[in-house]
Design a protein around this nucleic acid. Sequence first.
RNA 1: GGCCCCGUAGCUCAGCUGGAUAGAGCAACUGCCUUCUAAGCAGUAGGUCCUGCGUUCGAAUCGCAGCAGGGUCACCA
Length: 596
Amino acid sequence: MIDKDLQIAVSEALKSLYNIEVAAESVALQKTKKEFVGDYTIVVFPFVKQARKSPEAVANELGAAVKASMPQVADFNVIKGFLNFLICDDYWKSFTDSIANDSTIGLKKVDTNAAPVVIEYSSPNTNKPLHLGHIRNNLLGWSVAQLLTANGRNVKKVNLVNDRGIHICKSMLAWLRYGNGETPESSGMKGDHLVGKYYVEFDKHYKEEIRELIDKGMEEEQAKKEAPLMVEAQKMLKRWEEGDKEIRDLWEKMNGWVYAGFDETYKKMGVGFDKIYYESNTYLLGKELVQKGLDMGVLFRKEDGSVWCDLTDAGLDQKLLLRKDGTSVYMTQDLGTALLRHNDFGADQLIYVVGNEQDYHFQVLKIILGRLGFDWADKVYHLSYGMVELPNGKMKSREGTVVDADDLIEEMEKTAEEMCRERGKNDEMTAEEQKELYHILALGALKYFILKVDPTKTMLFNPAESIDFNGNTGPFIQYTYARIRSIVRKAVGEKGLDLTAKCDNVAMNEKEREVIKMLHDMPAVVEQAAASYSPAMIANFTFDLAKAFNSFYQDTPILRETDSNRMLFLVQLCAAVSNSIKNMMWILGIEVPERM
RNA sequence: GGCCCCGUAGCUCAGCUGGAUAGAGCAACUGCCUUCUAAGCAGUAGGUCCUGCGUUCGAAUCGCAGCAGGGUCACCA
C-alpha cells in the first residue's frame, strides 16, 4: 500500500538527509485535508530542530527526496510546515483494477483453527421483555462479533441467560396468585411480555403490603423483608433450589414462554449465538474456586463464615464471595463461568458486552481471577457500553419508562412502510417482497441509529421523534446501495458490459479519485475499528463513503458515457463501492436491498 | 464522601496515538427532477470545543484544579 511505502520513504529520507532516526511505522502520515492540494501529508515540525533548518526548507528537501525515490509520487507542495504529496492517477487506477471484482473487499479470511475469541452479549433476565437498552447490547454484541470476524478472528458468540433467582420466583408467585391460568395462547400475548406483566404485578402488590405494614408502625427496612409476598417468594426460591417438582415444572413452563418470546425478538433483530448458557446450570460453579482461593490464602473467611477477597491493597474494597450460609453471589458465579468458558473454548480472549454500570464488577473479576493464578485473567475484556437515556433520564422498568423492543421494531416497520408508499417506487413488488423491504429498512434505520454512536458513550433516544430515514442514517446508505445496484444491473443487462474485462487507462476526476481513496483507506478503518471494538467507526466511514459516492453519482452520467472503456471503469468503480457498502453493513448487521 | 465515565452548533453526534481555517446529520432558509432511483445533490446561516491554569513550535485532543451531569461503592444480579 502506498501509505506504508511513503512512511518508509520518509523515514529513509530523514536518515540520509539529516541523520534522524524515525521508524517507518511511527512516521505520522495523514490524509491531506480537502482544502489543500495533495493526497497524503507529513507534518515536518517534529524534525526541524534536529535538522537545524526552517520548516519550509525541511519540507522541500524531504519532498524532493521522496519524490525521487517513489515513481508513484507525482508531485509535492509545501505550505508552512506541511508537506503534501500528490499520488499519480496510475496508482489509483491499478488499485481500482485490483478491487473491481472483489466481493469480499474489506473482509479478511477467518482462520477457523485459531484459538477463538468468545464474546458474551445479550444475557437477558427471563422475567422481563427486552427494551431499548437490551437492543443496544444485542446490536453491539452482534456487530463487534462481525467486526472481529471481518478481521480474521475466530469468533464464538455466547449468551448467558439469567433464568433463576428471586426475581423469577416473583413472577411465578404473582402468576399463581393473580394469573387465573393465563397463558400466551389464552391471552394472545407474547410469552416474555406475559411473564413481564406478572413481574410488574408482583411489585404492585408487594408495595401495597409494605405500605400496610408501615401504616401499622413497622420500619420500612423490616417491612420490605417481612411482607408476606416477599417471604413467600423466598420460600419458593428455597423450594426451587431443593428441586421441588411442582416449582420446577412451573418454572420450566414460564421460562419456556419467555424463550419463545425472546427467540422471536432475536430473530427480528437478526442476532444469534453459537452457545447458550443457563445460569440455572452454572450458578453453583465458582464455589470450588473459592475453596482454592482459601487454600492459596488469597481469600479469607470472616467469623460468621462468609468468605471475602481483600482488595484494599488495590485501592478497592473487600468483596464478598460466599454468604455466611455458604451460598454464592454474582461474583462467585462469574468466576466459575469465566473458567468454564475458557475451558469450553480454549479461548484466546473473553469479551463481555455489559453496560458500564458494571465497570466495578469486572474490574474486581479480573483482579480476583489473576490472584487465583489464572494467567488468562488479562484476556478478559469488559466491553463497557453506555446507557440509552430518554429525554427525562434513565429508563426504569418499574416506572414504566421503558421503550419496549418489540414495540419499537413494529413502529419502525410501520414508518418504513409509510415512507415507501409515499414514494411509490415499489408498487410492482409482491406484497411479500414489500414486507421484506420494510423490515430491512426499519432494522437498517434502527441499527444504524444505535451503532453510529461510540459504544462507550451514553446516548439519547427521544420517543417523541421517530428515527430518521434521511441524512446520516441506515436507509440513506441502503438507498445509495440500491441505486448503485440499479446501475450495475443495467450496465450488464442492457449494455452488455463485462465487469471482469480489463480496463485501460482513463482520465479520472476529483470526485472519482475521492471515492477510490476512501476504498483504499477501508482496510485501515476496519482494523482500527476492531482494535477499539467500535462499530461506530464502521458506520461513520460507510456514511462518508456513501456521501462521496452520491456526490460523484450526481454529476457523472455513467450509463450515458460514450467512451466504452471509461464506462467500464466507472461501472467497475460502482461495483467496488457497492461491494464495500454491503460488506461494511454486514459488519453492522444491516442488510442492503437490491431496490427500494 | 471514595472510585469511574462524561461536557463540541438550537437538537443528535463525528473529530484515531497532539497538527493547517473544528466537521456531519436533523431543524431553518436558497437553488436542482423531459437525463442512471430527489430516501439524492449543491449552497446559506449557525461555535467562548464547560471554565481557568499548565505542558509545547502547536491543544477540542495531554496534565492539574474547578463547575455541571451520570454511574458505582448490597450477604441483588
